[in-house]
Simulated scan of single mutants.
Amino acid sequence: MPRLHCGEPLASGASIALPPGAARHVQVLRLQPGDGVTLFDGRGGEYDAVVEHMGRSEVRVQVGAHHAIEREAGVAVHLALAMPANERMDWLVEKATELGVASIQPLVSERSVLRLAGERAQKKQAHWQSIAIAACEQCGRNRVPAVHAVQPLASWVAGQPGTGWILSLAHGSQALGALAGPSQVTLLSGPEGGLAPAEEQAALARGWIPVNLGPRVLRAETAPLAALAALTLAQGAP
């Protein structure tokens, strides 16, 4: 059954017009009145729904029973990453959402190839948020991870009230699998070429813990996903 995200709060018994993105999805699938769909609003659980009306631009559904179903990971991983270039960030947001990421913080670092600011950064943030929503529709998650506004790495680290783990190739970093599994963690990952030494030192000086994924050097878009998978899939659902 198709799964559709609605940004507005849902309620059993309500008759609603689907938002444009969800309506287009229904039209592309050529659903007809009487066909069933599953709706979720990101606030927890999901709803049965039935298509009531198919118009040229409007699709209306009748919202049915709510089911308190969650498919979240047992550990909340907040991923902060210096954005990789080209389409790799799109792919990373999609896969991180599928793997259960709690939130994504795009960062611009000294060695970042992709450098965003102003209106362009806002458009990219909205684009990545829509990718996260689509990934939730596909994978069954009922809570959409927030994709935060792009920030410079230095000011973001300086403004953090707490610390987390930083993926590092430096001598003395600890194996990720050797650390006790937390209930939530912020994971910082660098861009192509890694974080600059001064950036990594600034994080370490504030108490961030350097961790590694073993002897192989993974690509900028692979390393955070490997760490995320190790944390979320091992923990399972709460």
Rank of each mutant, 00 (worst) to 15 (best):
G140E: 11
G162Q: 14
T163L: 05
A198L: 04
L213A: 04
S168L: 03
G193E: 06
A121S: 10
W165E: 00
G118N: 01
A180W: 05
P145G: 03
L116C: 11
A117F: 03
A126E: 15
A117W: 11
A196K: 10
I133P: 05
L179S: 00
E199H: 05
G164F: 01
G207A: 00
A135M: 09
G164W: 03
L204S: 02
A170V: 02
P210E: 00
S112E: 10
A170G: 01
T163P: 05
G162V: 13
A154Y: 09
G177A: 10
A134V: 08
L204M: 05
W128S: 05
I131A: 06
S183T: 11
Q129S: 04
L187G: 00
A135T: 03
I166F: 14
S168V: 06
A178C: 00
A121L: 05
S173E: 11
G207I: 00
A121F: 01
Q201C: 08
A154P: 01
G118K: 06
A126D: 15
I133S: 12
C139G: 09
S112C: 15
C136Q: 05
E137Q: 14
P215S: 06
Q174D: 06
W165G: 00
V144M: 08
L114C: 14
C136N: 09
A203E: 06
E137M: 14
S130M: 08
A170D: 03
Q174L: 10
L153E: 12
S173C: 01
L195F: 14
V150M: 05
I209G: 02
L153Q: 04
R216D: 11
L218Y: 15
E199Y: 11
S130L: 08
S189Q: 00
G190M: 03
L179Q: 15
R206H: 11
I166S: 01
P191L: 08
Q122R: 13
G194S: 04
G172I: 05
V147I: 15
T186F: 10
T163H: 14
G181N: 13
K124V: 01
W128Q: 07
L116E: 15
L176G: 01
G194C: 08
L179T: 05
A135R: 07
Q125W: 11
A126R: 13
A202K: 04
L153V: 10
V113E: 09
W165C: 02
L167R: 10
Q138E: 15
A205Q: 07
R216A: 02
T163S: 15
W128D: 06
V157C: 10
E199D: 09
L213G: 06
L179M: 09
S130C: 07
Q160H: 08
S189T: 09
R219N: 09
V150H: 08
A180G: 11
V217G: 06
W165M: 00
A196Q: 04
I209H: 08
R115N: 12
R120E: 12
A134I: 03
W208T: 04
A121Y: 13
E137A: 02
L204V: 03
A117H: 15
A158R: 09
G193L: 13
A196H: 14
L153R: 03
A149C: 12
V211L: 00
E192H: 01
Q122H: 12
A198H: 13
I133K: 10
L176D: 08
I133C: 03
P161H: 07
I209W: 07
C139P: 09
